[in-house]
Design a protein around this nucleic acid. Structure first.
Lengths: 196, 196
DNA sequence: ATCCCCATGTAATTTGTTACATGATTGA
DNA sequence: TCAATCATGTAACAAATTACATGGGGAT
């Protein structure tokens, strides 16, 4: 499942131009599968070359032709095959965590800065996802809702974890607090009233 | 912060061979910064060429020389600079979520299979992290504990979310449930009380 | 016997990111 | 006037993954 396959899948919902697809990537896929023009345009060219999509060029004035792509029958089959293909990955690559791993070798200020920046980013992610959910009330499919909720759950857990445990990086006592109902035994120390 | 920088940082704790570093990547970094020999060996060669590490080759019989690398003063400075460098990224690339996004176009069996496989993987991740924590009781630094706890929190949230919402992908009613203490009131609808 | 651990590396390939290249229209 | 939106693409670069290449020793 690469950018190419994803473009093919999105075109299955409705015909679109590369520019349109970029906007879709910016909206729902942003937090778990970002893609830029540099990936999308070549992907569309490849799909067209494989016969999985057809392209209609619509002339416009002042702008390059708007090239609208539609899935072909072969394209639909190829996408269905891709969905059946096993083992979709789920990969995290976090320079943030890698950096925090070396917290001992860092200055407090720098540490605070990193944690705050990450919290801010998580806040933006949450806003973004909620914005999508609000704006498109009834229009989301089950898959879309599931995915949006998943992103929301992960981002809020991450934020809560950072808030609950940042002191662990500054002082040198205490064990990590799980932001969860199972957190159990942190009675007085740092307990989080949490929830989950 | 790439594999090269991470190797440099790890060598700051103790001298090691490429083989040793691989094992460290397999342990604590596995879930957020995986790296294979194909990345590690070239990284060490680069670091040596830059003068950030020195190498001592220890002859062995039947095996290739064991090459043990140690950080130099220049290497320590370079690593400290890297830690001060701003904006460490935190990137997720999930084919899993991308696939689920198209849940409507998939068969139930396939969907179940994907969810179960993901849950199994999350279970393995949790076991892995807890194993590390248990095995190295007092030896973990604050940074390491924070990172391990972070991974644990994310993985368990993901697992709980999938379990709580898989029905959403099968039936066609209901809104996503946030895996949260407030989940409670799913009285008649499926409404979620949620939110952070 | 067979598999896993030890131990190193190179080369090809894949994928994606960033920078480059162009340019009109619309709204603040 | 300035920024944003619309609209497409190519080329260079970066980074990591995978496959290739080799081989002894020890445990089951």
């Amino acid at each position: 499942m690469d950018v190419k396959t994803l473009c093919l899948g999105l075109l299955g919902n409705r015909p679109a131009s590369g520019y349109d697809l970029k906007k879709e990537f910016e909206s729902l896929f942003k937090h778990f599968f970002p893609a830029g023009y540099g990936s999308i345009y070549p992907a569309l060219a490849d799909l067209a070359a494989s016969g999985y999509v057809s392209c209609e060029a619509i002339p416009q004035d002042g702008k390059p032709d708007r090239k609208v792509y539609s899935v072909t029958a072969a394209g639909r089959e190829a996408f269905a095959r891709a969905l059946r293909k096993s083992k979709p990955q789920h990969k995290l690559r976090s320079e943030f965590l890698a950096t925090i791993y070396f917290a001992d070798a860092m200055e407090q200020d720098r540490l605070e800065e990193l944690l705050d920046e990450r919290l801010a980013e998580l806040g933006r992610t949450l806003e973004h996802i909620r914005g999508i959910k609000d704006r498109s009330e009834g229009e989301l499919s089950n898959g879309m809702r599931f995915v949006a909720g998943f992103g929301e759950a992960l981002a809020s857990t991450a934020a809560e974890y950072i808030e609950a445990n940042r002191n662990l990086l500054l002082n040198s006592s205490a064990a990590p607090t799980r932001t969860s109902k199972t957190t159990s035994t942190n009675s007085k120390t740092n307990r989080i009233e949490n929830r989950v």
